[in-house]
């Protein structure tokens, strides 16, 4: 360790810390102020309100629905993406003809802004003019058009599917990185000991991939929990709030209905929720490692 100048590390850290703190903490403080104030529909403060805004959010039946769906949405996408990405990464790690092309195809959704992806899907899912229905009809999979976005029973699963699709590239990339960091000697040794591929997977690949899985889970949870464009561009949380998650509900509350106080309270509650999850997960993950 260098100990020449005790202030040196602080000097090095300072520019980044100040910038991040300014852009992140100051708005956070603002939210705290707004959420405990009476606010008019244009965000102008009109006096102290205590916890009224928090109570209002808690007692709104739409909040509970959105909270519940957010959990389904987040877990569905995070674990869906995990389930797809792990085998895909294993395959892409193998040597086969066209691997480069396959890797590029799998990464491709990453190159498109999620907003645009969502807009394209919305168009593709259109009941009469959408190419998904017409494609499925051509393949004789369906014979009448499905109105994908008409009810939550079809819309929400499709939205989760889109979410998985845009989450896979990042996850696969992490896993590929992980697989390439596992030394080939270990596999060689396992092969010499005559262990089956399944055993190799259980004894070597899976345990060594653990930290990569953990990273993917934590980062994806943060991204997916806060993800707005997919649901907004396809259904705006409808019909009848049945595809609302907390973020879309927050947007409606704040910018459509002009309840900025409640929206700020909800923002902070969402932040707390995410914080609690992350701490819990990091704690569980590190405990497992120690065991």
């Amino acid at each position: 360790m260098q100990r020449t100048a005790p202030l040196a590390p602080y000097a090095l850290v300072m520019p980044g810390f100040l910038l991040a703190a300014f852009i992140v903490l100051w708005p956070l403080y603002q939210l705290g102020v707004i959420s405990t104030s009476e606010v008019n529909r244009f965000g102008q403060l009109r006096g102290f309100a205590g916890l009224e805004n928090y109570v209002a959010v808690f007692t709104d039946p739409d909040f509970i629905g959105a909270l519940w769906r957010t959990l389904i949405w987040t877990f569905g996408i995070v674990f869906g993406a995990l389930a797809v990405s792990f085998p895909v990464a294993m395959i892409l790690h193998e040597d086969f003809y066209g691997r480069g092309v396959a890797r590029v195809i799998v990464m491709l959704p990453w190159a498109v802004s999620i907003t645009m992806t969502a807009i394209v899907w919305r168009w593709a899912l259109n009941g009469e003019s959408g190419m998904l229905n017409s494609g499925l009809k051509n393949l004789n999979i369906i014979d009448t058009n499905i109105q994908w976005l008409a009810q939550a029973a079809t819309a929400f699963p499709v939205q989760i599917m889109i979410g998985i699709l845009v989450t896979v590239p990042f996850t696969v990339t992490i896993f590929l990185g992980g697989l390439s960091s596992i030394s080939g000697d270990l596999y060689e040794a396992a092969r010499l000991e005559g262990s089956s591929p399944l055993q190799t997977f259980r004894k070597i690949t899976f345990p060594l991939m653990r930290p990569f899985v953990n990273i993917a889970v934590v980062l994806n949870t943060i991204y997916v929990f806060n993800s707005f464009p997919i649901i907004w561009a396809t259904t705006q949380g409808g019909p009848a709030n049945s595809t609302d998650i907390l973020v879309t509900y927050l947007y409606k509350l704040g910018f459509r209905f002009g309840k900025l106080g409640e929206a700020s309270a909800l923002s902070l509650m969402m932040f707390a929720l995410l914080l609690a999850f992350t701490i819990l997960y990091v704690y569980l993950a590190s405990r497992e490692v120690r065991e």
Partner: peptide
């Protein structure tokens, strides 16, 4: 009506009309 009305916003219905549907 067209099936799945809750999937159709104003522009979507207008598009159907323009197509003579």
């Amino acid at each position: 009506t067209q099936p799945g009305v809750t999937a159709y916003n104003r522009e979507d219905v207008q598009n159907l009309f323009k197509q003579g549907k």
